[in-house]
Write a protein that binds this DNA or RNA. Structure first.
Lengths: 333, 333
DNA sequence: ATGAAAGCGCTAACAT
DNA sequence: ATGTTAGCGCTTTCAT
């Protein structure tokens, strides 16, 4: 590894001068600057980040905490955030965390060791120790797609969005609607709440048997959820519509339906949530709730940047607009 | 941030003693050790990684270079690698890179600044400067899913696997087979080569018009590719089977077929590649080539670990077995 | 404009 | 067993 001293020695100057050049500071004669620049170019010298972080007491890095088993939506989101953060000059470090105490503790320790400038959570924590730590050291933090008291959040109104999705089904004449949701994230609960709210407003029967909560928001568990629903309802001909808490869940559920000899949307209408890439290509194309993923990502990065630099207003919660995208998986009863 | 000095001061001992305890070294009396451990617990002290890296001259971190627009297969793979690396005690840093000179240069600079213990590439580089750098500084490196001369690689025989996929189609009686592949990764070329090889062996016509290369390996581009193919073939009734270079491409292509009024597998059989999660849930379930993703990930981490510790044989190229998974998207003509 | 020196948090070598 | 010291690569006073 070529260090600042190597450059200084080769140039016959001091490390200070090299440092000034490397950081674009003034007060260096242009001939020396030229010479050093040339040496940097030749040797491919790049300042060591660890050493820099130590003296500067900041890392220009932000930590992005994401679920260990992130779904397609979350994957798209973190790419956007990463790119956006980069445009502000931050380097993004990813921290994968399971929804378990031990994994969270592990994640927290890694985070602590890094001396980050800020933290973004895409993923709520089971253990409040995490939030307490953020609070205690006063590190800038932002949450995306969910909120936690005291931390600025960027998200949509999950409950309302879910209710709207269900209302679409109701407006199509469906009277017997079921739902598959999941554990581990608040949005699973919120979307289920929206579901019940819409049912209530439509004056429909809302026994708990209408919702099954599965372990993961994936296609695999969507299929299991559907099997469970079919079992509960004794073969299933008695519901005509399904609301799935994510598009992946919806895709798996449609598979389960198909396996049981039911077609979508002829026999059962299905609405998903997220409007993930693949949703507009599967058969049938999915009716779903589109989250403004680009805006969520960009606003999250911006809010954190503001919070880090501190030279503008403290960012507040931002609730962004969603949109119901009607495609082929729903139809009138 | 609580530092080693804070602990030392509170304990009334020297930093060395605290360091010894924090690193589980011997030669500390058990009462002092107790006291320090307690303090560490209370304060939540975690050694600063940057400072540690500086004196140790190693970071216990490995860089994982992945494509900016990673597909589902690559996403699954990097999770596995990350977990596996963690079990060896490494922290993984992700570096997203586009297949462009500037992005690669950017990525290389970040890499250099980090002083990594090793590097894993999931993604080939356009510019050879990248490989030259690895070589020059002699940093341990491993490539996964592709190979570059001089760097140990973990991968399947892409060409042979593709040929097998096509042979399956041939054995089903298909005589007019087309393909959608992509740019930017060698595997796109290799899978196309396997396609041509199988066609040759089956003594079939192999004009270049049979393959369309799209820009990305996503469902979106799979659909575009199919449209292009349909255009070329004047409406399309004259091919009965498709080989898609990835499952996502296959899903998009099936959508394109469906939109043109053709059904899979009744009118056209489709084979994908990768056996991504979603492939066993979509309609129709995809026939595809399964890469041993878990083994690829684990062997990659292991090979790098060996290369870093240097206390075992230098790892060599490993070619892992693939498997053709026959599901619903293919049938006899 | 330039260099010398101090110090960031940590570990290891060297005393004691 | 424990403390003192030096030094990792860098930036930033502070002299000159």
């Amino acid at each position: 590894m070529v260090s600042i001293k190597d450059i200084a020695r080769q140039a016959g100057m001091s490390a200070s001068t090299v440092s000034r050049v490397a950081n674009g500071k003034k007060h260096v004669s242009s001939d020396k600057r030229q010479r050093i620049l040339q040496l940097i170019e030749e040797t491919g010298y790049v300042p060591n980040k660890a050493a820099r972080a130590m003296v500067l007491k900041k890392t220009s890095s932000v930590g992005l905490v994401i679920p260990d088993t992130f779904n397609i939506f979350q994957r798209e989101l973190f790419s956007i955030i990463e790119r956006s953060l980069e445009s502000f000059g931050y380097y993004t470090m990813f921290f994968f965390s399971k929804f378990e105490d031990i994994s969270e503790e592990n994640c927290l320790n890694k985070l602590k060791a890094e001396n980050l400038d800020g933290i973004i959570l895409l993923h709520e924590m089971k253990n409040s120790a995490f939030y307490e730590y953020l609070n205690k050291i006063g590190i800038p933090a932002v949450t995306a797609t969910f909120r936690f008291p005291g931390i600025p959040a960027i998200h949509v109104n999950e409950e309302q969005a879910a209710a709207d999705a269900v209302n679409h089904l109701v407006s199509l004449g469906h009277r017997d609607i079921v739902m598959i949701s999941g554990d581990g994230f608040t949005f699973g609960r919120q979307r289920a709440d929206g579901f019940f709210q819409a049912l209530t407003e439509a004056d429909m029967d809302l026994d708990d048997n209408r919702v099954v909560f599965v372990r993961n928001y994936t296609a695999e568990f969507g299929m299991y959820g559907m099997r469970e629903l079919l079992l509960r309802r004794g073969g299933g001909r008695n519901f005509t519509a399904l609301f799935a808490a994510t598009d992946e869940l919806a895709i798996g559920a449609i598979r389960g339906l198909q396996d049981a000899g039911m077609r979508v949307p002829e026999d059962v209408s299905v609405v998903g949530f997220d409007d993930v890439d693949i949703s507009s290509y599967v058969i049938p194309r999915l009716t779903t709730v589109r989250q403004p993923i680009k805006e969520i990502g960009e606003q999250t990065a911006l809010a954190l940047h503001r919070s880090i630099t501190g030279n503008s207003v403290v960012p507040e919660d931002q609730i962004l607009p969603y949109r119901l995208i009607i495609r082929e998986s729903t139809r009138a009863v």
